[in-house]
């Protein structure tokens, strides 16, 4: 969540939601959350676990450039 928050402050285009998975089981199920942290970007790109900043940024760019598959 740390990187997502910092990115939200760095850009007006970025919104960062931190979701407590246990409290929202249906929401978690919708995104097939099996392990945490699970990150979903624009419902297109998703990954589990913490990524270094460079890889996180790549995932963001993939999500806006039409990469990934719908979550």
């Amino acid at each position: 969540m740390r990187l997502a928050q910092h990115m939200a402050v760095a850009s007006d285009q970025v919104r960062a939601d931190c979701i407590e998975a246990n409290e929202f089981p249906e929401w978690s199920q919708q995104y097939r959350v099996m392990a945490v942290p699970k990150v979903v970007i624009n419902d297109r790109v998703q990954f589990e676990g913490a990524l270094p900043e460079r890889d996180f940024l790549s995932a963001v760019l993939r999500a806006v450039n039409g990469g990934g598959t719908p979550a």
Partner: peptide, 15 residues
């Protein structure tokens, strides 16, 4: 990030 032209919505599921 400054060059982003469209919205990015990041959801982080955690416990």
């Amino acid at each position: 990030l400054a060059a982003l032209a469209s919205p990015v919505h990041i959801k982080v599921f955690a416990t």
